[in-house]
Structures are given as C-alpha cells and as structure tokens.
Design a protein around this nucleic acid. Structure first.
Lengths: 261, 261
DNA sequence: GAGTGGTCTAGACCACGCT
DNA sequence: GCGTGGTCTAGACCACTCC
C-alpha cells in the first residue's frame, strides 16, 4: 500500500459541499471523509498544497480548516512530515468520590503508567500556599511537579505543594506521594476538588503533546488529615481527550451543597 | 473619556517583545497590556488595521494573535463593532457529591437563573437510549433540552432523555425536572456522572455564546430510582469559563474505584 | 457612508523530516 | 534535496454596526 492517500481522495478535483465559508465547507468535507471511513486513524491526508489545488482554494483556507480539526483533536500535524487522522485514544477513568492516588489507581487497572519529574524541591511559599497550607512564618514549602504518562502518552501534569514540616525531603518521594505520606503517618483521608474546563497553555501543551489552547481539565485539590489539617494542595492539568472523571451523586439535602464540612 | 483606546496604546508605533513568531509576540503584548491594567474588561482594542500598521505586521498576523485570545475567552470580537477585553465572569459552583437539581441548586444561592426550552417531546428512541433507559419494545422516549442561563449569560445546555412511561407529557415539565418527577413519585436518589473536557461544537457554541471550539465540560449523567431502575439519561455541555464543579473525596478502599454499585 | 471584523487569494520564505 | 507544515505579506471584497 504505497499511497493510501491517492486511493482515498482520488487524484482529481475535490467537490466541496456548498454552503457557508469555504474553510467550513472543507472542514465538513474532511470530517465526512473520516466519518464514512474513507480515511482512518493513522492515515495521511493529502498535503495542504495538494488539497488547495484540487479543491480550488488557497492554501491559507486549507490551513484554516485543518487547524480547527487539529485543535479538536481530529487531525494531527507533524512539521516536515504531513497531516494525519488522529489515532483513537482510550480514555482513562478516575473516580471523583474515592480518594486514591494516581499510581495506585492505575496499578489497580493494570495500566502501565509512569511519571517523569518536572520539579522537586523546597521553596519559599507563595502567599496562596501560606494561606491554604497554614504555613508557620518562615516555614518553607515542598513542591513536587510530575508529568503522568501511560506508555508514551502524556496524561496529566500534577503540581503538588506540601508544608516542609510534613514533607521535609521531596527528593525522597518515590512513585507514589500518597504511599510516601502513609509511611510517615500523614496520609490524607478526605479532599475537596474543584474541576473546571480550561484551555491548555502553551508550556503545558508542549509537555502534554497537544496543540496549545486545547480543551483540558484543570483540577485543584486540597487534602486533609483526619485531624482536619490541610496537608496537600495540588493543581493538575489533564488532557481533555484521555480522561473521564466519574462521580456518584446521592440525593442531597439542602443544608450542604458544596461538600464542605 | 472619548477614546480610551487612544490613551492606552498611544498613537505611535507598538514595540513588540522579541522572540518567537510575530503573532505570539503580539499576543503576549496584548496579554501584558491587560495584565497590567492598561486596558480593562469592556475596553475596546485598536482596530485590526490600526494595530497592524502600528506594530508593522500584516493584518492577518494581528488576526491570528487576536483569534487565539478570543478562543481563550480573553477578548471578544463583535462583527462590525470592534474588539473588546472580555468582561470578567463570575464562576458558578456545583457539587459533585450531592444530587440536586440545577434550579434548586441556584435558587439556594439566590442566583437568578432561568431556562429556555430548546426542545420537548416524545420521540422514537435511539439505540443508546433504549439500552440505557431499558425501554420496552415500542416504548417512546421523552426528550427535554434546555438552555440554562443566569441573567443573560448562558451557562449550559442540558439534554435529558426519560422513558415515556415515566414522563408521559414532557410539555408539563415546569422549571425543575426533578420537582416534576417528585410529584409523580419518581425522583432519583442516586446518579453516576462522567465528566470530561471537550471542545464546544459550532451549534452549541452559538447557543452558549462562546467561540466555536472553546473548552467546555461534557457531562453524562445516569440517574437511578431507589429501586435501581434508570430513569434519566442526561448529556450536558457547560461553558468552561463559568463553571466550577466541587467534589469531596474520601479515602477509598481498593474494592471499588468507580463508584459503581 | 465610514469603519469594523470575516473571508479569501497568490506568493514568498523558513524550519523540519526523511531518504 | 525535496516535500512537508509554519509563518508572513499586501491587497481585495463582503457583511455587519453605528452614525
């Protein structure tokens, strides 16, 4: 199969579905081709110049259509190589009612996950960290930043902050922060999470291997010891295309809508 | 204050921060101006042609920078009128552990929310609805689609499906689906939600008044009666810039990571 | 009608990958 | 070296808003 591309689109002119701006016509045309299986995940599209000529539009217009599909995760572009239909990604599920660590969670599913360290160290705290963690004056903060991956696919960036009094030696943390905390008797028993959709900023997008501005989940988590003390404050960015969070809801009374104690 | 714009940017040339592609330099320059308060929410930016001339770049390049900021929700463009710094939006919080109805939830917060009907009626079910709702052969499905708003700001699109046997007359549903169900003794007591980040498609983006492709939350909810029967299957799209979901987590045992019974 | 954003073009050069 | 995507230009016309 030398040139799948040639077979699929033919070599002749491209007939666009009429209606609306050209770049949207072209976008719909590409979506339709994928929809009906004419091109499949992993397949290459014709080059931008080729498509432009055959659809009788300018290359700028072709790019505008493709860029939208790239941002939506439908296509993948590789500089110097070509444009491809994005491979299907399996979604990962995570519970929103059980407090589990990422590592333990994935191990339970038999998924090969790993983490790369982005940062580990003791720092002077930001005002926000001082307030949330209830730091004493002069107390430093331990920061741990990790890139979570399954195989070669990045899943999420996790940036955790803990009081230096609780995690004196960030370098000693192994694969799982929670099991490290458990060994020192400081494993959290509950946590509050805030979840929102967000656009992934350029720097994070690079780490997560998605186009800048892609949809992702921004999660803030504050964890508590049984004593009620805050021990961990974590901000994470999850790729939008690989994560499903699952929550179980129960009939609530009006007294407490926020989950706050 | 005739022309805030003129004062803020001056009339002279624009000095871009060096480094990287021009459109990113320009994007950073605009972000910086907003950051330091030189232009504030609601203020107009110079026109694209004006900025292009003063920054000595082409209009296409100006547009590329602005488009990114529009997608991120930083700027708002109004055809024929101009480009403005987006007004700040207050975020709405919603619990992920208490099963409450949208209407009741907001009323408790004293927020003026309302809904517009997008669709109400009985339909032949899709295969998915038949399976999830456990429909009998020939049984139809009641569909309710609403646009949720606070004041004039759209918040979310909700599309619910119920067995016709449970909701025989969709037209009779008032402001709150749950209180309607309660009256017929069919209020759900628990639900499973799946949450993911997603790009908002063009049609939905129009309803939600955000640019197509913006980040949003896609939520699927399946609600159960005390008997265990599924009574509601809802898909919702929430704007990413106006919603925070809050979940409380408790230390989980390994037996049950999904919240599934 | 003047000014704004929205679309589109033809052509150029650069940076990257592959062979 | 050749083909690919990435950036950028100058100029054009359309559609919309506001005066």
């Amino acid at each position: 199969m030398a040139e799948r591309t040639g077979d699929i689109f033919g070599d002749g002119p491209v007939a666009l579905p009429r209606g609306g701006p050209l770049y949207l016509q072209l976008k719909r045309w590409i979506e339709a081709a994928i929809e009906r299986g004419a091109i499949r995940p992993g397949d290459a599209l014709p080059s931008e110049r080729d498509l432009a000529q055959r659809a009788d539009v300018s290359r700028v217009t072709v790019r505008k259509a493709m860029q939208q599909l790239v941002r939506e995760g439908v296509l993948v572009q590789r500089h110097g190589s070509g444009t491809f239909v994005a491979p299907e990604t399996r979604r990962v599920e995570q519970s929103l009612s059980q407090l589990t660590s990422f590592t333990e969670d994935m191990a339970r599913r038999g998924m090969a996950v790993r983490a790369e360290w982005l940062d580990r160290g003791l720092y002077p705290p930001s005002p926000e960290e001082t307030v949330i963690l209830g730091l004493g004056s002069g107390e430093r903060v331990a920061r741990i930043a990790r890139l979570r991956l399954t195989g070669d696919t990045p899943l999420a960036i996790e940036r955790a902050s803990l009081a230096a009094g609780i995690l004196a030696d960030p370098e000693a943390v192994g694969d799982s922060l929670y099991s490290h905390l458990e060994r020192s008797g400081a494993r959290p028993v509950r946590a509050l999470q805030r979840i929102r959709a967000a656009h992934i900023a350029e720097a994070d997008a690079l780490l997560l291997q998605v186009p800048a501005g892609s949809a992702g989940l921004h999660i803030e988590r504050i964890s508590y010891l049984a004593t009620g003390r805050v021990i961990e404050f974590t901000r994470s960015i999850y790729r939008g295309d690989t994560y499903d969070f699952v929550a179980e809801l129960r009939l609530g009374d009006a007294s407490n809508g926020t989950g706050q104690p």
